[in-house]
Simulated scan of single mutants.
Amino acid sequence: MATATDTGTRTLVSRVQLNRPHGRVIYWSALVLTLVIFTLVFLGPLYMMVTGGLKTTQEAIQDPPTYYPHHVAASTYQTAWTQLNLAKLLLNTLLYAFGALFFQLILDISAAYAFSKLRPALGNVLLGAMLSTLMIPAMVLIVPQYITAISLPFIHVNLLNTPWAIWIPGVASAFNIYLLKRFFDSIPQELLDAASIDGAGPLRTLWSIVLPMSRPIVSVVSIFALVAVWKDFLWPLLVEPDPTKQTLNAGIYSLSQGVPENVLIAASAISAAPTILFFLFFQRNIMAGLTAGSLKG
């Protein structure tokens, strides 16, 4: 029985090799070394950013850099918060992020539901064309998007210095629509047919049956939408020229003239903290939503 189990389970290192003394030492040494290297690669920049905000100005610009603050200046974070008006920039970012989330959920859920369950004519062609846009680099779209924001087609409205300049370009996300469609595909059609027999229309079916079952993937899409606005830099800098209306990243850059290096590093750490905490709190939802709907049956 043991032999059948060992041969039936395919792994990088066989169980027989793992039970040998040298094999076990090599395995655990390689595992620990890999974990340490990846930890340093991913957490090293975050550590340098956080500790850089605790250094004095002279130490922050020192070359070669120090690996820890020799003279801790904890007041640097308070200075960054007040001098760069991070409270205002944070409120702006929250407004743009949750506004984009609201409009994106309405459009993306509707589009994914139509592609998955309503099956419109040429739906696969439209979905393929939409997914093909993922192959276009985002930088290529900056100029046409900016021209569109200056003069919105048909109504010729200038969206600069308004939240709509950030909300509208991010409304339709091909990646999020694809994620939602894949999850909706896993919902049994029998449930929708039963709702239709009971007299429920497509909108009632979406609201009462599909959405309650889709909370994991909706959570993931929501997180992606929020993080996309939060980490964006170039687009908010272009369409929100007024520093008082910019997001955290763009506002820190616009207000950085004459600001000491350690204060800028502290401001960058403050701007990165919400997304890191957001992921730590909702990482289980992210993993569950990404795997939900991947298997049928």
Rank of each mutant, 00 (worst) to 15 (best):
A87C: 07
A112L: 12
L94Q: 03
V125I: 13
A138Y: 07
T93R: 09
V157H: 09
L90I: 07
A149C: 04
P120F: 10
L122V: 10
Q104F: 11
L141T: 13
Q83C: 02
G99I: 08
F154E: 13
R119K: 12
T76W: 00
D108Y: 04
L95K: 03
L122R: 14
A129D: 08
I142C: 10
V143H: 13
L105D: 05
A87D: 03
W81H: 01
L89E: 07
I109V: 13
V157C: 04
F154V: 14
P153Y: 08
L131N: 05
N158D: 04
Y146T: 13
L131E: 04
S151P: 04
Y146M: 13
L122M: 12
L118S: 07
A149V: 05
A129N: 13
L94C: 05
I142L: 15
P153H: 06
A121T: 14
T148L: 12
S132P: 07
L84T: 01
I147W: 15
L131D: 03
F115N: 01
G123K: 05
S151T: 11
A121L: 15
N161K: 09
L86Y: 02
L91R: 07
T79D: 01
L91S: 08
L160Q: 07
L126R: 10
I155S: 03
N85H: 12
I106M: 14
V125L: 15
V140C: 09
L141K: 06
F154H: 14
I150E: 13
N85S: 13
L127N: 00
L86E: 01
N92P: 03
L127W: 00
N92G: 01
L94V: 11
I150G: 07
S151I: 02
L84M: 04
N92V: 03
M139L: 11
A97G: 10
L94H: 05
T133Y: 11
V125W: 13
N124A: 03
M135G: 10
P144E: 13
T76L: 00
V125A: 15
I155H: 05
N161Y: 11
A138H: 09
L160F: 11
P163M: 06
A80H: 02
F103Y: 12
A129W: 13
T133A: 05
I147D: 14
L105I: 07
L91W: 08
G128F: 07
I136N: 12
H156N: 11
I147Q: 14
L90G: 12
A121S: 13
F102H: 08
L105A: 09
L126V: 06
A112V: 09
Q78I: 00
A129V: 14
A112E: 06
T148W: 11
P144L: 14
N124W: 02
I155D: 03
T82P: 01
T162C: 05
A138N: 11
A138G: 09
A121R: 15
G128R: 08
N161G: 06
S75N: 07
T133Q: 07
